[in-house]
Computed example of a mutant assay.
Amino acid sequence: MSKAQKLLAIKFVHTLIWAFLVTVILYVVYSGLTDTVDLYTWIGIGLIVGEGLILVLFGMSCPLTVMARNYSDSEKDNFDIFLPNWLAKYNKLIFTSIFVFGLILVLYRWLS
């Protein structure tokens, strides 16, 4: 495989994982809003917390971003994922905020 093909493969996988994790975050919010907290809500929270720990271990970068650096010299924030540059740049801020909101809702529903 060429460098371009490897980068393309990483971008594809990275985008799929990103879409899955965003879906999980939205499910956590949905669970809190609709008071339907269930086992899947807690599994989702665990997955997102686990992803957060992975990001911390890799210096706040996704391991796929670290891998993709080997195949690109691009300075763009979306060089390693199929997202608009602005979303790739603010991805962690946007989705961490949404997750925290959902987590607060879920904890409120669970405790009340």
Results as ranks from 00 to 15, higher is better:
Y27T: 02
L111I: 12
V28L: 08
N85G: 03
Y90D: 06
V49M: 11
L105R: 11
P63Q: 06
A88T: 10
G102Y: 12
M1I: 12
I45R: 08
I104R: 13
W86V: 06
V24A: 01
I17P: 05
W110D: 01
L93W: 15
S112L: 08
I81P: 07
I17H: 05
D35A: 14
A9H: 11
P84H: 09
V28R: 11
F82W: 15
F79I: 07
M67Y: 02
M60I: 09
N70F: 02
L47A: 07
N70Q: 13
Y40I: 10
I17D: 06
P84L: 07
W18G: 04
L107S: 02
F101C: 10
K6V: 00
N70P: 00
P84A: 04
S74N: 01
S72Y: 09
H14Y: 06
S97A: 14
I94T: 14
V56K: 14
L26N: 02
Y71T: 12
W86E: 05
I25G: 11
V29I: 11
F79M: 03
L16H: 06
F82V: 05
G50H: 05
D73F: 00
T96Q: 12
Y108T: 08
Y40D: 12
V28Q: 09
E75C: 00
L26K: 01
H14L: 06
Y71S: 11
I104W: 14
V100M: 13
I17Y: 03
V49K: 05
L83D: 09
T96I: 08
V22T: 05
F12M: 01
R109M: 00
L39R: 14
I17M: 06
A88L: 09
F20T: 14
L21P: 01
Y30T: 07
S72Q: 09
L93V: 14
K6N: 02
I94H: 05
K92F: 14
V66R: 13
P63A: 02
K6L: 00
L87Q: 10
S61N: 14
L47E: 02
Y40E: 11
L33T: 01
V28K: 08
R69P: 03
L107P: 09
Y30M: 13
K89P: 10
V37N: 11
V29A: 06
N85F: 04
F82E: 01
I10L: 15
I45P: 09
N85I: 03
A68D: 01
F12K: 08
F20R: 03
M60E: 09
I10D: 10
I45L: 12
N91G: 02
V29H: 08
D80E: 07
L53H: 07
Y71N: 09
L93F: 15
W86T: 02
G52E: 02
L83A: 13
L53Y: 13
W42F: 15
K89G: 08
F101N: 10
Y30W: 15
F99E: 03
K11G: 04
D35P: 00
Y90G: 07
N85K: 10
L8S: 15
T23S: 13
Y27A: 01
